[in-house]
């Protein structure tokens, strides 16, 4: 007995014993590296960035004046900049709603009906677009939506090109071609972020026990009532989780509107342009605070809706 105990007393085993006696020490050892990374490197640089927004740019010399001022924030409230913010938020909201509507039936099928091979096929088809480069997909869409693209060609062959021309002649959502319109930007955003909406909804639907649906029907509810009162409320946390992805990803993206769409700026592009071309780091910093604030409001709102405690 004592021999055995003696043999085990290496430095490693005393560490194991110490960890066993002090569970908090174990937790600290586990969490220290990621917390250092997140806390110091990520949050630290984020706050450094935010602090920059309280500096200002000297218009003549182009040098950053390192003194506290709110002038950059006043500049952010200029109508042109507010336009960028409103445009981005509207686009994010529309993309989120459209993705939720498209994702739900797919997720529902996968969660309730697909079994075995079909389930594997579902995961494959949903994930496959994520395997290829985002840039490749966006450029592909640019070609598809272009005036010389396949959609125009198909509509032309079907003799329905006048519909497209009529649509493009509409104000705001139209444009010279789909790939140079808000509609084009919207389509590509919806396509690119759709998997991020499908997967959380599918996960939420998987957790809805089948017998709740049977119980609802048993109590006299039509399929529509069952969807409204049982399935949707229980899957809602999944919709909110998905919407956090689609909303925040659209809010911050600066590649898609640059490749597909008109010349109007979105938040990401504004940050990119201000810190790169314009060299106005304070305004870029102020711009980048906007999505953080919006997401803060969004998450608070989602919580108020009871999305996080519905289950």
């Amino acid at each position: 007995m004592s021999d055995l105990a003696l043999r085990r007393r290496g430095p490693l085993s005393s560490l194991i014993d110490a960890v066993y006696r002090h569970p908090r020490l174990f937790l600290a050892l586990l969490l220290a590296p990621p917390l250092l990374w997140l806390g110091v490197i990520y949050l630290g640089s984020l706050f450094a960035l935010l602090a920059q927004s309280f500096f200002s740019l000297d218009d003549f010399s182009g040098v950053i004046v390192r003194e506290f001022t709110l002038s950059t924030w006043t500049q952010l409230m200029a109508p042109a900049n507010l336009d960028v913010i409103i445009r981005t938020v509207l686009m994010s909201a529309l993309v989120t709603i459209a993705d939720a509507i498209m994702a739900f039936p797919i997720a529902y099928y996968a969660a309730r009906y697909a079994r075995g091979l079909m389930k594997a096929a579902f995961y494959l088809l949903v994930m496959m677009p994520l395997w290829s480069s985002y840039l490749v997909k966006v450029y592909a869409w640019k070609l598809i939506l272009a005036r010389e693209g396949i959609d125009t060609w198909v509509l032309d062959k079907l003799g329905l090109k006048f519909l497209l021309d009529w649509y493009l002649s509409l104000p705001v959502i139209g444009g010279p071609s789909l790939s140079a319109s808000y509609t084009g930007t919207f389509i590509v955003f919806c396509y690119v972020w759709l998997p991020y909406m499908i997967l959380p909804i599918q996960a939420a639907l998987e957790r809805v026990p089948g017998n709740l649906i049977e119980a609802s029907a048993d109590l006299g509810a039509s399929p529509r009532d069952t969807f409204r009162h049982v399935i949707l409320p229980l899957a809602f946390p999944g919709v909110v989780a998905g919407s956090i992805f689609t909303f925040s990803l659209t809010l911050g993206d600066y590649i898609i509107p640059q490749i597909v769409g008109g010349s109007q700026y979105y938040l990401g592009q504004a940050v990119y342009a201000q810190q790169g071309t314009a060299g106005n780091i304070p305004l870029a910093a102020a711009f980048s605070v906007v999505p953080i604030l919006i997401m803060g409001v969004y998450l608070t709102f989602a919580r108020k809706l009871g999305a996080f405690d519905a289950l």
Binding site: L212, A215, D218, L219, S222, H229, A310, L311
Partner: peptide
């Protein structure tokens, strides 16, 4: 009407809402 083996109560509703469900629909 059925009383299910594991009850199948709606987790997002209160007791009263659960019981009133059949009448509500």
């Amino acid at each position: 009407n059925t009383v299910f083996q594991d009850y199948a109560l709606f987790p997002h509703m209160t007791v009263l809402q659960n019981v009133a469900y059949g009448l509500m629909v």
